[in-house]
Design a protein around this nucleic acid. Structure first.
Length: 476
RNA sequence: GUGGCCAUAGUGUAACGGUUAACACAGCAGGUUGUGGUCCUGCUAAUACGGGUUCGAUUCCCGUUGGCCACCCCA
């Protein structure tokens, strides 16, 4: 269809260019359009060039198609994630993509960037305020409460994988729709839970064939954190003249970020800044130490990073992030992150329930694999290709296809092609090990020609025995 | 949201403001009858969109859209 369109469009272009009097040509073309009656003058040339409704729709900003050529990565990564979660006896949960906006306001936090300016929020037709989920933990906690999972044996271990939405400016590794794999453990505050969750996130990447390091920190309890923040801001405020513009903003908005500044002037100030670990309450400090001990036992590589902060309000105590072992050039480098959120369930109206979890970005995992040169296994190639010549053979081959498939032989075919040459070409491209040729002659004789695509050797086989012969050839 | 860089066939690249926008890969069709990988030939296919400057714009300017980079934030 496009060919036709453009074939007519091109001469039209030329015609418009050659005469040089472009303006006139334009006017001539425009005038009739404005007259309602003149419509019929246009169609011969203009109509085919742009069919009906304007330019071809594009995908929205920050929204990507995942093309067939990418699917081997996606399949591989998804399978590994699911495999690991289930190996550690997590059970799958799928929650709706659309939730009440208030869910995220109450969990992620009203003044976090994600809620404040990155949600796809709108009023639905009934007047309810709803949002495309920006992350997965809030929904999992909501489901835990809604379905009375407190009554299940604790801890309840869940995993999910699906799309998340954030209205941000897209960049490499950052899109408006991305996918996350995550796990959540509800109902257990033992530090070994934190360790298991961290281990699992680490193992996913290990299974994917890339090296990551865990950055870990403790934010303390909801009670102890304000003390530290007060100390930190007081410290920085007294040295306000020495820090960069960005840090002045951070001081007001997100003080913990101050400790992340790369500005040389600020680094000096940073040296003397109070350390969060010194302000942790005893219980949180103890909790962190025990998590670290478990990680040592498990030989999970980690660095204690007192500057680590997370952007969601529900975190308390343990927070962690997964980063590439070697420094990466540009782009977004956090490969996953999570932590403990002991008060979230209660904040959402459930019974007090400690919890811990993480999220891993599927796109970032894939990007990271690619940057490290890790290739997923090639998808299974067809065992056989069914080639046919003539309509009788075509129909027979069509039926045969299903017979092979039902016997566990992966078949491929392109029944709409006529020439044998074409079909062999396709068989070759698909990497089929054998091509079965069914022509007029074979149909009459009740046979089929089996061609070994590697050696080029061919043998004629009774059609009834074809399945068994192929099973033997393929070692099935 | 702020600032910056960029935008040519499906992909990767070319084209002093001036004839028909070039090349490679991919795709499609051929190189007689029923045989793939190599080779040869041909074909399809692009200046993101909208304005402006100019005799003339892929090229210069503005806007829009999109991508990328930094900030911010995060997966």
């Amino acid at each position: 269809m496009p060919a036709k369109k453009k074939a007519t469009a091109r001469p039209a272009k030329r015609a418009a260019k050659k005469p040089v009097k472009k303006p006139d040509a334009k006017k001539a073309a425009k005038k009739p359009v404005k007259k309602p009656d003149a419509k019929k003058v246009v169609p011969p040339k203009a109509a085919p060039a742009k069919p009906s409704g304007g330019p071809t729709p594009q995908s929205l900003r920050g929204m990507k198609d995942i093309l067939p050529s990418e699917q081997k990565f996606w399949g591989f990564v998804r399978d590994k994630m699911v495999e690991m979660a289930e190996a550690y006896s997590y059970e799958r949960i799928d929650t709706p993509i659309l939730e009440a906006t208030s869910l995220f306001v109450r969990s992620v936090g009203k003044q976090t960037d994600v809620v404040e300016k990155e949600m796809f929020s709108f009023e639905d037709r009934g007047g309810d305020n709803v949002s495309l989920r920006p992350e997965g933990t809030a929904s999992a906690a909501r489901a835990y409460i809604n379905h009375g999972m407190v009554n299940l044996p604790q801890p309840v271990k869940l995993y999910y994988i699906g799309p998340m939405f954030r209205y941000e400016r897209p960049q490499h590794g950052r899109t408006r729709q991305h996918h996350q794999f995550g796990v959540e453990v509800f109902g257990d505050d033992h530090p070994i839970i934190d360790a298991e969750v961290i281990l699992l996130s680490y193992l996913v990447y290990k299974e994917l064939g890339v090296k990551v390091v865990v950055h870990i920190n403790s934010l303390g309890s909801a009670e102890s954190r304000p003390n530290y923040l007060a100390e930190l801001t007081a410290y920085y405020r007294s040295r306000r003249s020495q820090i960069c513009e960005d840090c002045k903003r951070r001081l007001a908005k997100n003080p913990l970020r101050l400790l992340d500044c790369k500005d040389p002037g600020c680094s000096a100030v940073k040296e003397g800044a109070p350390h969060i670990v010194d302000y942790l309450d005893e219980a949180s400090k103890n909790h962190l130490m025990r998590v670290l001990e478990y990680l040592d036992d498990l030989q999970v590589p980690y660095v204690l990073n007192p500057h680590l902060v997370r952007g969601f309000d529900y975190y308390s105590r343990t927070v962690f992030e997964l980063l590439p072992v070697e420094e990466q050039e540009g782009g977004q480098t956090a490969l996953g992150g999570g932590g403990r959120y002991d008060s979230l369930v209660e904040d959402l109206g459930g019974r007090p329930t400690p919890a811990c979890g993480f999220g891993i970005g599927v796109e970032r995992a894939i990007l990271f694999m690619k940057s490290q040169g890790v290739e997923p296994p090639e998808p299974r190639r067809p065992d056989i290709f069914l080639a046919q010549l003539g309509d009788t053979a075509r129909r027979k081959a069509f039926a045969l296809f299903e017979e092979f498939r039902s016997h566990g032989i992966k078949a491929a075919a392109n029944f709409s092609k006529g020439a044998l040459k074409n079909q062999l070409e396709i068989a070759n491209r698909l990497g089929a090990r054998y091509t079965l040729i069914l022509g007029q002659k074979e149909v009459l004789d009740g046979t089929v020609l089996i061609r070994d695509m590697e050696s080029g050797m061919q043998e004629i086989v009774d059609l009834n025995k074809a399945v068994n012969v192929m099973k033997k050839n393929l070692g099935k």
